[in-house]
Amino acid sequence: MNLKNKKIFSRIAAGVMTVAMAITLLPGTMKTVNAAEPVTSASLDVNLYKRADVYAPNTTFEFEVTNLTAEQAKATNGGKDLKPPFKNAPAGAVKPGTIELAPAAEDLTETSISKKLTFTLVADKFTTEGIGTYRYKVKQKEGTYEGIKYDVGERYLDVTVATDGTNFYIASASLVLYQEDGQLVKSGAFVNTYGVNKPDTENPVPKPDGTVNDLVISKTVTGNYGERDKKFIFEITINGAEGEWYNLEGQPAIKKGTAARIELKHGDTVKIYGLTENDTYTIKELEADDYKTTFETKLNGTNKAGGSGNIKTATGTIDAGTSLQTQEVAFTNDRTGSATGFASSYGPYALMVVLAGAVAFVLFRKKRAEY
């Protein structure tokens, strides 16, 4: 190859390299490997099933986390290790949150409420331990709120640590539920119930279990002088757990310890939903002094011992059972009389009215005669 051809070839090669370099700088042609993004938390649903028309309880669900050694972790995994292998889980590296519930109008007609539980991971406690799988046992604390059945089944949180070649980081955090056959599956939600049995495929709609019940107030007017169309006023106070609301049918909620007023005429009833065992009530009838008032307390249609009286204030305590309990306080207002009785009771007043009218008539005529 002569000198002239060598120069031409060199120029062509340089041009090709220049074009190639330019192409590599065009947008979208360079493949960038992003640095690993560490995981900082894990989450799990917490569900509460209840009856429609019952307010949610005013309570907090709490959780506890226990760090497991490598051997304890293997034991929960049917004696088998994982990849990366189990290592002793550092204490205090997983911080569980809490779930707070409170009565709310938007949840009243719902049969289930779902909240997200978050576990915060303390990164430096893991990265100092290096590559491995760290297992934690997660449980819900069993509370004492009346009517709630707590899901106290165990879940396991697996945290895995990896490296990007320079630093260790949390690569994943997932909750698993150990099964008897040795298989690990993704953990289901914690499922709590309030006044109902846990739904299943055969009973998808929660059924009452007898721990959250109803109170009914009814009104009957008797007697030949009883006013069937008159509305009688009642004052209702319910005392239960702090912050509880009770669903008063067709009216604003009754709040624990706060008096509410209703009006009932002959044949009317009203229902109050969401009372638990040992909740107490006071029902007082107002402005019925010209009636003899009695009441009976019935539980599921049967008279309850000690539940009747001839006074205008009824007090009682809610009972629990194995199915829905409906407690009724039935008020009867009676005003009975006869013509003789009416004359003896109201005759003097009527006579006074007649006499007053007669005097006024005489005076009026006398005054006209003077003119």
Rank of each mutant, 00 (worst) to 15 (best):
K284G: 02
I272D: 01
L117N: 10
K7V: 12
G147M: 00
A104M: 12
K50H: 11
N224K: 05
A42F: 01
S218Q: 12
L299K: 14
R261Y: 11
T302L: 09
M21K: 06
T18K: 13
S187L: 11
E154Q: 14
T193G: 08
A259W: 10
G341K: 08
R11Y: 09
T18M: 13
A356L: 15
T280W: 13
T282D: 12
D319N: 13
R51L: 13
V65Q: 07
K137I: 00
T201H: 06
E110P: 00
A89V: 04
S345T: 03
T313C: 05
A56M: 12
M30V: 12
E242H: 04
E227S: 10
L248D: 14
R335E: 08
D319G: 08
T118I: 13
Y150S: 00
T133R: 06
I113T: 01
G240V: 10
A91Q: 13
A56N: 14
T294H: 06
A305Y: 14
I262D: 08
T32Q: 11
A14Y: 10
G195N: 08
F126C: 09
E235I: 10
T237Q: 05
A73H: 04
A314K: 01
G97Q: 11
Y194R: 00
K50T: 13
P84L: 01
T302G: 04
V161I: 06
V176K: 02
I217K: 07
A102K: 14
T336L: 05
K256V: 03
E287I: 01
T111P: 08
F342N: 07
T144L: 00
A260Q: 14
V94Q: 06
G309W: 12
L44D: 13
D81V: 05
T293D: 04
E64I: 11
A36C: 01
T282W: 07
A314S: 15
T201C: 02
I311Y: 09
R11S: 09
A123P: 05
I217M: 07
T193I: 06
N2Y: 13
K137F: 00
I311H: 12
A52V: 08
T282E: 07
N247I: 02
L117S: 00
D124L: 02
T111I: 11
I23G: 14
G240D: 02
M30D: 07
A91L: 03
E249H: 07
W245E: 08
N2V: 05
N167Q: 04
V216M: 05
T237A: 02
G257D: 14
M21E: 02
F342A: 04
K207F: 02
G182L: 07
S174Q: 15
P27Y: 02
E71A: 15
L157T: 09
P103G: 04
K116I: 01
E106R: 04
V33H: 12
R335T: 02
R11N: 15
S114P: 15
I12T: 04
G182T: 07
S112I: 13
Y134H: 07
T302K: 15
L157A: 06
E296I: 11
K367C: 00
Q140E: 14
A91V: 09
E154D: 15
G78A: 10
V270A: 01
A356E: 09
K87T: 05
Y346H: 13
N197S: 09
N2A: 10
